[in-house]
Amino acid sequence: MKAGTNLEKVLEAGNFAVTAEVGPPKGASANAVQKKCEVVKSCSDAINVTDNQTAVVRMSSTAGAVLLKQMGADPVMQMTCRDRNRIAIQSDILGAVALGIGNILAISGDHHILGNHPGAKGVFDIDSMQLIQTMKMLRDDNQFICGDKVAGDVPIFIGAVESAFSDPVEFRVTRLAKKVNAGADFIQTQGVFDVEQFAKWMKGVTDRGLDEQTHILAGIIPMKSAGMARYMRDYVSGVYVPDELVKRMENADDAKEEGLKIMLEIIDQLEDVDGVHGIHIMAVGWEDIVPVIVEKAGLLPRPIV
């Protein structure tokens, strides 16, 4: 075991994992985090806490993750390369592990120009690939980036992300391979709406044997309305929503119901895709739907490991 987190145990035991996501509030209310955690806790194996997602300032992911941990959940602390240099990154990792956080997920981070402080100075001292390497170095070599020794163990189950539909599409399997080589123990993908295309990417992944070296969790983004489907199709990078699904949402009498139906169809198909070890449900702002999806997908109860 790398860190012995619930997520790691669930995946290592060969279960089809379910992770959810909680976005911290634009404020200091612990209760806001706790309420969301309460909704998704019993229907997931671990819960991501986003790190100032879309570059909008919120409560820190470390604080959010600690609040989740206090409630008995297994947090996945997201960490971007946007806001910290290598000194702060390594320091924050040590602090997070000291507070009982075992899963840390490396991402580049949405560019600050898209957020609510566009005049900020972006850091990007190291990139997400190098952040994965850094965590592996801290854990396996007991070493900081500079080569100095770390005092004691730094158990981390290292997470990373990949986007099968971003460009250049031909490079996306290679990029995943680099992340696996860098030390990613699990991968959460961007939202999947076209399972056929996703399966093609996964074929490239399994052909290289990457699914045996890391656990891949396919991203699920529940759709609430036809407007949301159109928005994701037209404006969200790396998300490919086929027109056919947008039409289904537009023609539905009850869009929420149709969205749920679509998600369940996608999950059902994903369970049959070779190399997929679980799903990651991103329902930020619509946490109530998570238990419904997990239950209707037949993924309850969650394993006790």
């Binding site: 390369c81 949405d110 898209l114 972006g122 990139d127 986007s163 460009d167 250049p168 490079f171 790396g238």
Partner: peptide, 21 residues
């Protein structure tokens, strides 16, 4: 690269265009 990445594109690359603009 808007994020000074050294190991390939982030998820924000679509049709050859960066997510920033």
């Amino acid at each position: 690269c808007a994020k000074t990445l050294f190991n390939g594109p982030c998820g924000g690359s679509v049709n050859g265009i960066c997510e920033v603009s």
